[in-house]
Design a protein around this nucleic acid. Structure first.
Length: 264
DNA sequence: TTGATTGTTACCGG
DNA sequence: TCCGGTAACAATCA
């Protein structure tokens, strides 16, 4: 579930619910009790997303840093409180709502220097207005690694996950195995712009939707992909080939996403 | 019980 | 320094 759009959506939602409020912070499962007690009954100033990282900023520049990993979930509900479902590491409670954070891989309290370090190791985030895509392009241009790997590397550009990777490259007719150094500025811009566009839609719909026909329809339709997890290309009807990039499944239509001949 | 999954980091070796 | 490979960890669901 958690690609960048999920995290940004949660940040926006929780910011509205929690900004300026004193929160009760507990750890129902007891695995985060010291961290929870550091933040308990402090005022939450704002909530922000940096790529797939969530940051709840509290008074005194301390922050709750959360990364959901592959399986983590974050859920907001109106009061009254209900018993925690599953492995709730952190529960944040305001006067009106509560948020449960299930199964994060990172869950820690950090200070301002920790926040600075986080920003330093995460690349420009396609969903943030303050992102500078030039930094991403420079890194891609210097790398011989496949573009399919580079656009999912959060230190190069942040927000894209395994599904968007396949879908964006298909939509832009770019073969995932083209090395970064063979990607032109114009091609990079198409990737960046489509990522920003699709993730913003994902935020609105709370679902990964990458099929034009569904993007333009008003119907709520849940997840809609072009070639991710499929066997035939909706554009040319040819075979979709499954491959692995960094031990993650990826898909390509070799006909619609041609690999240039001079590239091995 | 097994396997798969929208993620990331640490460590080692070439 | 860069890059590939491997393991580890996280929780849930079919």
């Amino acid at each position: 579930m958690p690609e960048g759009h999920t995290i940004h959506r949660a940040a926006r939602d929780h910011r509205r619910a929690f900004s300026g409020q004193k929160l009760s912070v507990t750890s129902p499962q007891g695995r985060f009790s010291e961290g929870a007690s550091l933040l308990d009954s402090k005022s939450c100033e704002t909530v922000e997303a940096i790529g797939k990282h969530l940051l709840y900023r509290f008074q005194n520049s301390s922050a709750l840093h959360v990364h959901l990993g592959l399986f983590g979930r974050v859920r907001k509900n109106p009061l009254p409180l209900k018993p925690p479902k599953g492995a709730v590491r952190v529960r944040l409670v305001s006067k009106t709502h509560y948020v449960d954070i299930n199964g994060p891989t990172i869950c820690e309290v950090i200070d301002q220097s920790g926040v600075d370090a986080l920003f330093k190791r995460i690349g420009p985030d396609v969903l943030r207005a303050d992102a500078n895509p030039e930094i991403s392009f420079q890194k891609i241009q210097r790398s011989g690694l496949p573009i399919g790997q580079l656009i999912m590397d959060q230190s190069i550009m942040a927000g894209i996950g395994n599904i968007y990777r396949t879908e964006i490259l298909w939509r832009q007719a770019i073969h995932p195995e083209i090395p970064g150094k063979a990607i032109s500025r114009h091609t990079f811009d198409r990737i960046w712009d489509d990522a920003a566009y699709l993730l913003a839609i994902g935020m609105k719909r709370n679902a990964i939707v990458t099929v034009d026909a569904h993007l333009f329809s008003k119907k709520r339709s849940g997840e809609k992909y072009n070639i991710f997890g499929t066997v035939s290309c909706p554009k040319c009807n040819g075979d979709v080939r499954r491959l692995e990039i960094n031990k993650r499944r990826a898909f390509v239509c070799d006909k619609c996403q041609p690999l240039p001949k001079h590239v091995s």
